[in-house]
Simulated scan of single mutants.
Amino acid sequence: MNNNTTKLPVQKPKNTKLRIRFLLVLLFLSGLYIVALISTDFDVRASSASSLETLKRMFIDPIIDPSLYSEYPMYIGYMLETIAIAYAGLSIAAILAIPVGFLAARNMAKKYSYIGKAILNAIRAIPELIFAIIFVAAVGMGPYAGVLAISINSIGMLGKLYAEVIESIDMQKVDAIKASGGNRIQAMWYGVLPQVLPEFSSYAIYRFEIDVRASTVLGIVGAGGIGAPLLLATNQRNWEDVGMILIVVIIFVSLIDYISGYIRKRIV
């Protein structure tokens, strides 16, 4: 048996063009950064307090100074209002996103699924802060505007996730129900919903975590919650109040993350 094999010469790929393109892109980006640094005004307003003093007032004094403890119940109340805004907005969105999700699913809406996808894309393209500004101007300042902003924005994300869940179901179960004489409603009730409801619930709970954080920011534009006191305390350089608000937010968000994570594990 002849073990002699002819070795073909291995040619290294010509990467000269690739290097030239990389250098051109690098030069272009470097030029953009240089222009941005030259044209940006970095005039920072000086503060009489040092950075260490500010950090001490924000994260140490609210813990060790007993005279500040009386302010915590007020900020806890604002945080509970923030959680209520997120919960109300999510409750609306979790229900309204179901028909939109079915409309956007290819295996349900068929050729009309592009309508649902277009609706969801349009909603997701607008941040909840913009929705909050619009609803504050429409219905006035307060939690109602925050609930509307959270609900509309959550429909866009939940609807997309719902559609992906619906598209991944086992259609053989649905076809079996139809083949045995079941109508369209029975196929939906017994074939589709039992497959999608656990994941729908899991995604809705996960979205609640996001909505709590979003509701914290929406108060800045007057949509209720703890954002308005945070903005006011920051503008007044009242760092003790800023620290207390941040501590309350961190504690509540951490608790919600832990509880929702536990619930999602039990559901899925």
Rank of each mutant, 00 (worst) to 15 (best):
I133H: 02
R264G: 04
S151Q: 07
Y206E: 03
T216H: 11
G146F: 01
A97G: 06
G156L: 10
P194V: 04
A125M: 06
I34M: 13
S201G: 15
A204K: 07
M1T: 01
V35Y: 00
Y144P: 14
M188P: 09
E209Q: 05
K12W: 02
G101N: 09
I256S: 03
L96Y: 01
L23E: 12
P13W: 02
L218H: 03
I20P: 10
V165C: 03
T40N: 01
K14P: 13
G101P: 07
A132H: 01
F42V: 15
M244I: 12
I134G: 09
I263M: 05
N238I: 10
I250N: 10
G156T: 13
T16N: 14
Y72N: 15
A137N: 14
G222T: 03
S168T: 12
Y78R: 15
W189I: 13
V139M: 04
Y262M: 14
K117G: 04
G227K: 08
G31N: 05
S201K: 14
I152P: 04
L90Q: 13
K178H: 00
S151I: 09
E128K: 14
V136F: 00
D211N: 14
S151N: 08
S30D: 05
I259E: 00
L197M: 12
V221Y: 02
K265E: 10
G31R: 02
A204E: 11
I133T: 12
A109D: 04
R213E: 11
P66E: 14
Y33E: 12
Y78K: 15
T6E: 13
R184H: 04
T54N: 15
S113I: 11
L231R: 14
G181M: 08
I247P: 09
D257M: 02
Y69T: 15
L23R: 13
I76H: 03
V221C: 10
S151C: 06
V100R: 06
F131L: 03
G224S: 08
L8S: 13
R213H: 03
A88Y: 03
Y114E: 09
I20M: 08
G156D: 09
N183M: 11
M79N: 08
N4S: 12
L129E: 04
A233P: 09
A163L: 05
A214V: 15
L80Y: 00
A149W: 01
P99H: 07
L193S: 07
Y114G: 14
D241E: 14
V147W: 00
I38G: 10
S215D: 02
E128C: 09
I92M: 11
L255N: 07
L231A: 14
L32E: 12
R57P: 08
P66I: 12
I155F: 00
I166L: 07
M1F: 06
I205P: 02
F59Y: 01
L55V: 11
S39G: 04
D211C: 14
I256A: 05
P143Q: 12
I98L: 06
I130F: 01
L158T: 05
K17V: 11
Y87F: 12
V248F: 00
E240Y: 00
N153W: 02
F28T: 15
M171D: 08
M141D: 06
Y162R: 10
L18Y: 00
I64V: 13
